[in-house]
């Protein structure tokens, strides 16, 4: 009973913490994105709403809350209404197993990696639902592209993650961080890190792989028909997914919470936001790739490289 009691407590506190983190993180990330973009583009970005526009995204969120929700007549109603909710489900669950600091983890499961990877697949489903149900050609395009892209990049992502797990021998995320006591895995797995960043950018639909919402081709992609709060949920999920893939990159390659002087959680967040900055940097620098180039890039280059990396890791483990 006491275990259950403490579990319940842990659950509720964790839930509140995660919801707060997701909301604040999304607000902060959108502000950060706009500021980063602006400064790369020789302009100040949001300035007038709050100090340096710091509550700009709060205003945006409030505005979206007070916006009408239009449901077009031609849509497949149940699926259309369900999609923004479905895209939000994996977002919260993934936070269950992320270790922010040695003891700051809601539930240290022994299948942590698998849980995140499995729920990440739900995002694709939600995008497919949204795009297909909208009965809009641009949305449908976005949805189909998104699925093709996500499945193409999921395989190299899996294989790359495997080469890390091979070295640790555990799916538990805290074990992976613990294994990096002497050196970060980025030092011995640089290729895996590059592969992971590439795939993660594609999995989160970020430029240069943002084809499901390619503005110049598909207007707004799969969420063209979504207005107000429904659109905000897609946005929220996108930015939280960015956080999750960056957190995983930190755990897999950058030693998680490890670092001198500062407390563990501080190091963790510093590393995560540095990764997010990198992804933003990509977005504001590169043009978008073409769709067939994107897919064939995954199959022709990323998957063979990931395989080679896995075999090399396996081989080296036998030698040393």
């Amino acid at each position: 009973m006491t275990i259950f009691g403490s579990d319940l407590f842990r659950m509720i506190v964790g839930l509140i913490g995660v919801i707060a983190l997701v909301s604040v993180n999304a607000l902060f990330l959108i502000w950060m994105e706009r500021k980063v973009a602006a400064h790369m583009q020789l302009r100040p970005g949001p300035m007038e709403v709050g100090w340096h526009g710091s509550i700009q995204t709060v205003a945006d969120a409030l505005k979206l809350l007070g916006k009408e929700l239009i449901t077009p007549a031609e849509v497949d109603r149940p699926v259309y209404l369900l999609a923004p909710i479905v895209i939000f489900l994996p977002v919260l669950v993934s936070f269950l197993v992320i270790p922010f600091a040695p003891n700051l983890i809601i539930r240290d499961m022994n299948v942590g990696v698998l849980l995140i990877l499995a729920f990440a697949a739900l995002t694709v489903l939600a995008i497919l639902m949204a795009g297909w149900a909208s009965n809009n050609k641009y949305s449908a395009f976005g949805a189909i592209r998104s699925v093709a892209q996500n499945v193409a990049y999921e395989i190299p992502l899996l294989i790359t993650v495997m080469s890390v797990i091979l070295m640790v021998g555990s799916f538990r995320l805290t074990d992976i961080v613990a294994a990096q006591e002497r050196y970060w895995f980025i030092l011995i797995q640089p290729l895996a890190f590059i592969l992971y960043i590439t795939c993660a950018t594609a999995e989160t639909n970020r430029a240069p792989f943002d084809l499901p919402e390619a503005e110049s081709e598909l207007v707004a992609g799969f969420h063209t028909e979504y207005s107000g709060m429904r659109f905000a949920l897609f946005f929220l999920a996108e930015y939280t997914n960015m956080f999750i893939v960056s957190a995983l990159a930190t755990i897999f390659f950058l030693g998680g919470w490890r670092g001198p002087f500062l407390p563990g959680w501080a190091w963790f967040f510093i590393k995560v936001y540095a990764m997010i900055f990198l992804i933003m940097w990509f977005r504001w620098t590169f043009p978008r790739v073409r769709f067939d180039q994107l897919i064939t890039f995954a199959w022709k280059i990323l998957i063979p490289l990931a395989f080679a990396n896995l075999l090399l890791t396996a081989f080296l483990m036998k030698i040393f």
């Binding site: 839930l15 809350l65 916006k67 909710i85 939000f88 489900l89 919260l92 269950l96 709060m229 949920l233």
Partner: peptide, 24 residues
Amino acid sequence: YVLVFLVAAALFAVGPLILAYFIA
């Protein structure tokens, strides 16, 4: 844990939608 979080996520997503329906 997973179940509770899934339900919470669904509620967290539905809440604003209902609110928006009333105030927009």
